[in-house]
Nucleic acid binder design. Structure first.
Lengths: 192, 192
DNA sequence: AGAGAAACGGGGGGCCACCCCGCTTATGGG
DNA sequence: CCCATAAGCGGGGTGGCCCCCCGTTTCTCT
């Protein structure tokens, strides 16, 4: 298995190109944290000290840029999912992980949007794909333990989490509210 | 109690102004149905046969326009809530109503966004206010019957429904998916 | 009918995404 | 070490959008 499946071209990237690319991702990270997922791409280029054309060449769509910005955070969540497979209670493990995903999605504005889209097939290994695989392992285990209802799929769960993150994004205390909404969704509205 | 609390100005609106306003709302309704809540306002004005300045004079913000477009649909949902107060099972009544709200939110793109915002205080009686009051009656009854968990508030429920509608908006079969997600959220992820 | 006010809308400013194309610069063979 | 080559760059143009200013048109009341 290759160390990095996302770089199949044989010619290594030119040094300046890689440098610019890194600057762009860094600037985008800052601006997205400040202004959300629909931050101005021109401003990103400006802050990166790069022409807007360069940004568009490296990232043909906004989504592509978001993927690059959030990649490492998503990887962390995937790793977390792996750890939780060792947890004795499968239902609890899934629930814990979903809360972690929700927390990240709220903390990093725009991540929620990225997690929900499975659309664009030109982007190769997307955040959505990664997190789906990671979560699915947890879900399958929970289902085997009969801890989740049968119509629950990983796609639906992630959509739910992403939607909640999006909905609480401009709340004054979004993190706490998201936590609560997720708890309600997981345990149900009705009393048991 | 006045029949229409939203028109306190004594001078009646000029005939042409009212005509334009109606045209704008109609055009906006069409375009929002086609392109979602972030349809181009210029295009709305164009289709209404009106200058863009006129649109902005009548509706100082996008949100104000959305409120006008969805007002009657929201009133229908409020009426539905009133009817459901007669339902014998309070928990069931609440759940039925939430599904109805979800269905409307999915069918009318952009409605979900409107229902969640309680922000702008300059807009008087907003859709959000109306639906909150209507739903609260159902929720209070359900809570009295001990049918819902205590941390559930009407604001949170509506946020949940709106978020789900938003998340399924670009799904191929959004309506069915939203229905399912809502069912999961209401009954909980876990088996009972 | 005429005065006055209310409403209109063309057009301009500012911002943005996206792309074209002539110029710069890294790279690897000689 | 040098230079040919092509990968990469970015200024500036295009078209779209939101929002507002202000001269002009249209309604309304007497």
């Amino acid at each position: 298995m290759p160390k990095d499946a996302a770089t199949p071209p044989r010619r290594p990237m030119r040094a300046d190109a890689r440098r610019n690319l890194e600057r762009i991702v860094a600037a985008a990270g800052e601006l997205i944290a400040e202004h959300g997922a629909d931050a101005s791409l021109e401003e990103v280029a400006r802050r990166a000290g790069v022409g807007s054309a360069t940004l568009h060449r490296h990232f043909p769509s906004r989504q592509a840029l978001l993927e690059a910005v959030f990649k490492d955070r998503v990887e962390a969540l995937c790793a977390r999912a792996g750890d939780l497979l060792a947890e004795p209670d499968p239902g609890q493990a899934l629930s814990t992980w979903l809360r972690a995903v929700g927390a990240h999605a709220v903390a990093n504005r725009g991540l929620g949007t990225s997690l929900m889209r499975d659309a664009d097939p030109s982007l190769g290994e997307t955040c959505h794909d990664m997190i789906t695989s990671a979560g699915d392992a947890l879900l399958i285990r929970a289902r085997a333990a009969d801890a989740v209802r049968p119509e629950v799929t990983i796609t639906r769960l992630l959509k739910l989490v992403g939607a909640i993150a999006l909905a609480t994004e401009q709340d004054p205390d979004g993190a706490a509210e998201a936590e609560l909404l997720l708890a309600i969704a997981i345990d149900g509205v009705r009393t048991r």
